[in-house]
Simulated assay, not measured.
Amino acid sequence: MIESFADDIWIASGPTVTGAGGFHFPTRMAIIRLEAGGLFVWSPVALTEDLRDAVDALGPVEHIVGPNSLHHLFIPDWAAAWPQAQLHAAPGLDTARPDIRFDAILGDAPDPAWAGTLDQVVMRGNAITTETVFFHRPSGTVIVTDLIQHLPDDWFSGWRKLIAKWDRMTGPEPAMPRKFRLAFTNRKAARAARDRLLAWPAERLVMAHGAPVTEDAAGLIRRAFAWL
């Protein structure tokens, strides 16, 4: 259910979700224990009783984060389960989900509650979504939602398999899907955010849609953003 990824960071896989065009995607979330002992929940997956029990065993949930405007389906269930938690939205998510009461909008500076553990940068200039990328300093883990993906070659079939290959959702290594590349209409803003991201001493990579990376994470991230 929940597996340890590094000291004070855990990951959990959820059920597949179906997006536009009938494309289905695996889901993954991350849970981080902050310095004071509270939990930071990133991109929560579908909440089950077993998952709730496992999370409660780690500590109190204090922050629930929607890292872009596409990852929000299960936030209401988590907010109901832990009503004391603060809800944080990437820019644009609050507009996409006006029914959710968000406490704060994510910016380029980490919230004081997690500034000692996490850094972050907002990838602006994309017409599809504005994503906040996080960096877990103690483990050297970069955490991305949709900007880097990697699905098995046989994940899709038929015409969807052909489109996924063209889109770079599948391939020899994790990469930025072509649709997100094309959607960066403000490349100056994108490059500024990329430069901050590449300055992090990355050792690991966690993706919402793809297996975690524990080797050559810095090189992989650099290659994923090299087109900019």
Rank of each mutant, 00 (worst) to 15 (best):
M29W: 05
D77G: 08
A211D: 14
A226I: 09
W159T: 14
F135T: 01
F156N: 11
E173M: 09
R137L: 01
L47P: 01
D167P: 06
P112F: 13
L106A: 08
A81K: 04
A85S: 13
H209N: 07
A90M: 08
E35M: 12
V65K: 05
L198R: 03
R222L: 04
A12H: 01
A208G: 11
P26D: 07
G37K: 05
S139E: 03
R181L: 05
V206T: 07
I31R: 01
A109P: 02
F102R: 10
P152G: 07
A36D: 15
M29P: 01
D167N: 15
L220A: 06
P212H: 06
V65G: 05
A183L: 09
W82M: 09
A192M: 12
H63P: 00
G22Q: 11
V61W: 01
R124N: 01
A199S: 14
A183V: 06
V41R: 04
P76S: 07
L118K: 02
F225V: 09
F180P: 00
W155P: 10
G107V: 08
T145D: 14
I163K: 13
M207H: 02
P152N: 09
R222C: 05
W155R: 11
F180S: 00
R33A: 08
G22D: 11
L220K: 09
R181S: 00
A217I: 07
E62A: 15
R137C: 00
E35R: 14
P177Q: 05
D94C: 06
V133A: 13
I75H: 07
D154I: 11
T27Q: 10
G14T: 08
A36N: 14
L228Y: 06
P172I: 09
L58V: 04
A202S: 09
A199L: 06
L34M: 12
R191V: 03
S139M: 05
T117Y: 03
A164S: 12
E203Q: 14
P44N: 10
T214Q: 13
S69Q: 11
I105F: 07
A113Y: 06
P152M: 11
F23T: 03
P138C: 08
L58S: 04
L151P: 08
S157D: 13
W227F: 12
T129L: 15
F5H: 02
L118E: 02
A190H: 08
A96T: 12
S43N: 15
G19A: 12
I75P: 01
T95P: 00
L205V: 04
R191P: 00
G37W: 08
R181W: 03
V41H: 03
V206P: 00
G107A: 11
L39D: 06
T185G: 14
H71C: 04
M207D: 05
D94T: 13
K165Q: 13
D77A: 15
S139W: 02
L58C: 04
H136E: 02
L228V: 03
R187E: 12
P76T: 06
H209E: 06
Q120T: 10
A218W: 12
G140P: 00
V45H: 04
R97E: 14
I128K: 10
V61I: 11
R101S: 14
A89P: 02
E62R: 15
I9F: 03
N186R: 15
W10P: 02
S69H: 03
T170I: 13
R223E: 10
G38R: 07
L198W: 02
I32G: 01
G66P: 10
P26M: 05
P98I: 11
A175Q: 11
P138D: 10
P212A: 09
D8E: 13
